[in-house]
């Protein structure tokens, strides 16, 4: 079973659980929520969706590309605000739907503290026989806004799932990933990337001043990506840049809610 087939089976499973498939997203920096998910969970109506996307994780660059830790990862993100719905059980059922016998394999939910994550949000990475095949998040706060209803975000790494199901080769790496790593470590010019970060942040703030939260959010996602790129070349603290991004994301959330209330 290749990862396309895994994606289809999972989409089928989650559609059965009331999470319809929405159009795929081209790319997303690691740790970001797609715009559809972000504004969806902030809205008045409970939001549920299943979306495929490419996630770029430049923090992995120093190690080089590896299929168990790919720099460009194909993922399926399932977001849902279905009250007391137990996503942990659903996660296991979805693995069973892929043919994984959870009585035989070592499946674990390992708690993860993400940098700067609000304390009311909790996150686990999901391991199958120690391979990190996805994550489960329970969000009560987004962009500094307390959510009306808790959002649960399930994420699967499709290539890693394929490997854990003994369908993939863990040894090979992708040329795309290797190029990304080489660029991040050796080629990206920190001053220019820093200027791009400032420009994107300014564009985000400019869009927000016009009440245009969607383009603002796209610029904020770009800032996340540029910040992780910069961190590969600099050894100084990225705390300040993290705080700036947090403020931009918070601005997007507030602008959305203001527009919704108007």
């Amino acid at each position: 079973m290749g990862h396309q087939e895994i994606a289809l089976r999972l989409q089928e499973f989650w559609e059965g659980e009331g999470c319809p498939t929405i159009p795929a997203r081209g790319w997303l920096p690691v740790g970001g929520l797609s715009p559809e998910g972000f504004f969806g969970v902030l809205s008045d109506e409970p939001f549920s969706a299943c979306q495929e996307m490419s996630v770029v994780d430049l923090w992995l660059s120093p190690y080089g590309d590896d299929l168990l830790h790919p720099i460009i990862d194909r993922r399926l993100q399932v977001t849902s605000q279905a009250g007391s719905y137990d996503h942990r059980k659903r996660f296991l059922e979805s693995l069973r739907a892929l043919g994984l016998d959870v009585l035989v394999h070592d499946v674990r939910f390992v708690p993860r503290s993400e940098d700067r994550m609000p304390s009311e949000n909790v996150c686990w990475k999901v391991l199958v026989d120690r391979i990190e095949i996805g994550s489960l998040k329970r969000l009560r706060n987004l962009g500094g806004i307390a959510l009306r209803e808790e959002a649960q975000v399930v994420e699967y790494s499709l290539p890693r799932l394929a490997i854990s199901l003994e369908e993939g080769d863990a040894g090979s790496s992708s040329d795309r990933g290797e190029q990304c790593a080489t660029y991040a470590l050796h080629c990206a010019e920190p001053e220019r990337i820093g200027s791009l970060f400032e420009l994107s942040a300014a564009e985000c703030e400019g869009s927000l001043s016009c009440g245009l939260y969607r383009p603002a959010y796209e610029h904020a996602l770009h800032c996340i990506h540029l910040a992780s790129l910069l961190s590969q070349r600099e050894q100084t603290s990225v705390w300040e840049r993290g705080a700036r991004i947090e403020a931009l994301i918070s601005g997007c959330a507030k602008a959305y809610l203001e527009a919704a209330d108007a």
């Binding site: 080089g64 590896d66 168990l68 016998d101 035989v104 199958v128 026989d129 120690r130 490997i163």
Partner: peptide, 27 residues
């Protein structure tokens, strides 16, 4: 592992993880 498993079924994945860790470290 956390809880009883079939060691023969999970060993290959554990070895993949160990192999990946060594490759990344060598990188």
């Amino acid at each position: 592992s956390d809880g009883k498993v079939d060691p023969d079924a999970v060993r290959a994945n554990y070895e993949r993880v160990a192999g990946s860790a060594i490759r990344r470290c060598h990188g």
